[in-house]
Amino acid sequence: MYIVLLTYTAPLPEIDYELPDHAEWLARQFEHDYFLASGRRDRHLGEVIITRPMARGKLDAVLATDPLALKHLAHYEVVEFAATKTAAELRTVNEAIAR
């Protein structure tokens, strides 16, 4: 499982212009069942994405297709972790086999 910390590297007007394409990209990742949650970070610094378990190379390939990455408007920090405790709603995710 991963937490992706996305930090904007361009002025907010440039980011805002690309957000509709980024939102469509996010929607596709949820449709593919890759992402569990996403949202903006405080003070509009960037975003946080929580992913399902998958191979790191696959995650890197998915992130590389983000319009913000393609236009070099954001930096991505990926934190891998193994959840040892989860809420009942997340137990199936915790027990999921990496894809």
Rank of each mutant, 00 (worst) to 15 (best):
A82S: 03
A69Q: 07
W25H: 07
E24T: 13
T86I: 09
P67M: 08
A96L: 15
R40S: 08
M54H: 11
Y34F: 11
A88W: 11
P13D: 03
A23Q: 14
L5D: 00
V48M: 05
Y34I: 05
T9S: 10
A98M: 06
L63H: 02
F30S: 12
V93L: 08
D60H: 00
T92A: 10
L45T: 09
E24D: 15
P20W: 09
Y17I: 04
L19V: 10
I50K: 00
R28D: 15
Y76F: 15
H72F: 09
M54A: 13
D33V: 12
G46C: 03
M1S: 08
V93H: 08
L45K: 02
H75D: 10
A64D: 11
K58L: 13
T7L: 01
L12Y: 08
A87S: 13
L59H: 00
A74F: 03
Y17A: 08
I97G: 08
A61D: 14
T9V: 11
W25V: 03
D66M: 06
E31D: 15
V4M: 08
L5H: 02
E80S: 02
V48R: 02
A88K: 13
I15N: 07
N94A: 14
R43E: 07
T7M: 05
D16I: 09
D16S: 10
Y2T: 00
P53G: 02
F30C: 11
A98S: 06
F35P: 03
K58R: 15
R28H: 13
T65I: 09
A37L: 13
T84K: 04
I3R: 00
T9P: 03
P67K: 07
V93W: 09
A37Q: 11
A87C: 10
S38L: 01
T9K: 11
E24R: 14
